[in-house]
Nucleic acid binder design. Sequence first.
RNA 1: GGCCCCGUAGCUCAGCUGGAUAGAGCAACUGCCUUCUAAGCAGUAGGUCGUACGUUCGAAUCGUACCGGGGUCGCCA
Length: 570
Amino acid sequence: MLYHDLLKKELFNYINSEYSKRNIKDIPNKSSFNIEIPTNKKFGDLSTNIAMVFAKKMELSPRDLALKLSKHMNNKNFIEKLEVVGPGFLNIFFKKSFWQDQLKVYFKNANSFNYKIVKKNICLEFVSANPTGLMHIGHARGAVLGDTIASVLQEVGHKVTKEYYINDAGEQIKKLKKTIKFHVNNKNNKKIKTDDELYPGEYLEEISKKIYKQESSELISENNIIKFIMNDIKKDLLKIKIVHDSFVSEKECSSKKNIDEILKKLNQKKLTYYGYQEKPKSLNNESWERKKLLLFKSQEYGDETDRALIKSNGELTYFMTDIIYHQKKVNRKFDILLNIWGSDHSGYVKRLQSALEQLNKKANYNFEIKLTSLVNLLNDKQVVKMSKREGNYVTLREVVEKVGPDVLRYMMISRSADKKIDFDFEIVKSKSKDNPVFYIQYAYARCMSLITIYEKTFNTSLKNVDFQKVNLSYLNLNEEIIMIIKICNFFNVIIKAAEFYEPHRIANYLFDIARDFHAYWGLGKVDSSKKVIMDQNSKISLSRIILIVSISTIIKKGMNILKIECPENM
RNA sequence: GGCCCCGUAGCUCAGCUGGAUAGAGCAACUGCCUUCUAAGCAGUAGGUCGUACGUUCGAAUCGUACCGGGGUCGCCA
């Protein structure tokens, strides 16, 4: 067992038995205490706050409980030393042989770690960019984040359906069609006036030419236009390694049958009424008219106002089609519905969640929405101004061509979703520590180089070595032990990243392990007895190269989850 | 104005969901290439964690209020 599970089990069992000895009715919670890797070495190899968490219930002082735990653990043969410090920390120092063994345990688990989680069936909806043009850099964030979350969730064993909801209905599609028609009719390339009635930009102009070549102008169908654009979107997504499992069309989703079904349900539960809305604040009093609409009583569930379900012209609102779509998801028996949305939709979260909640009061599923902040493109330290209105936004396509998929992917997930990202072309293109992707890849390439040199020097192949049988007692430098501790913590990082939908934890972890590795490498520059490969000592070299192999597998696996390449030499 | 998010070193960000002396990377200064990839390493310096109360053994982390920045408030999507 890797140390985290081992310690948790050992310590927790003790608490459990003490609870029953003392007839404490509460059931202690295993996840309420931590096992940490302290930054300060004097606090031990590992440290736990367990005593401070459970002492109160046991009517002990934290220090007393820590002392009891310390006594309990002290007879374990892998313990070097235990210390109770401060308010009640239990600091644990292990024998080096324990860590050497742990490295072997890592190798046993490396390809088949049991994450011990309850497997869920998850529908992860992301991107869902409107098919009215190419994706821009802002879409890239949600796209990469969603895709990487899917990857992490799959790694720990969940079943994930990656879904794209195509908004192929409503006003914007009418506008799209109008725009295409306009271009087709004005094929002699006159200067185009930017008109609120039409979408700007060259892209749609080109699309219309392509469509025109294939069919006569009367035959341009909505479906065809959308197919064209969706094709381009899919191509762009593929370039950053994103492939959805499922595409759901808004138009198909809002069939008459589905509409009637939802309306019936909504009415049965008395969630709707015909009424009027206040004039929206964002509109000036120009052309607004008070009209009777079918409304959802979202005010009762914390919304500012009731929301329209059916427009005055009889068409469905986006809200209504979204209810239908999400209700279908519920019916498809997913355990978790997870959506990745841009933060500009934050005001919409409550509405949709309460609608679904009211429709499925006893249902057994979670509906979660993860919001992502904006992305600023920086050029010469200046924010590149983008305006969709004028059609001068930077497309995802252009960015990928400039920086490649790896850097783009890393940048988009390396920080938490609720912080805005400044995407600086200068830094992103640099090949130095400025750019964490290169730094991590470089660590991997150096590992691979060491492995090659090792095999040459000792004229052997590591494939023929049984790591479980190697004597690893030469791994006793502090730097080596620290790396082993971190290596054995890798799976916990993945579990947390999956639990909180936060792949940036993996990115940061990889950077951290790469830094430790580069530092380790640097030791050999100063002190040749700390080189990984020492021609005259095959035993030390073998121990060390196995550590290097473990690091390389970690980086490889981590980068695989993030879908970032790891070249063997650079 | 209402709601949501953010505020940690000069800059960009971590901080393992309440723990010990708050950590990295840039940028600045100092060293290290006849020696496993210098796309690198080692070191120095840099902080009232926006402010103020509160919750408790203990707060960057939780709560409230305020300040500053961003987003959003349609029968658009």
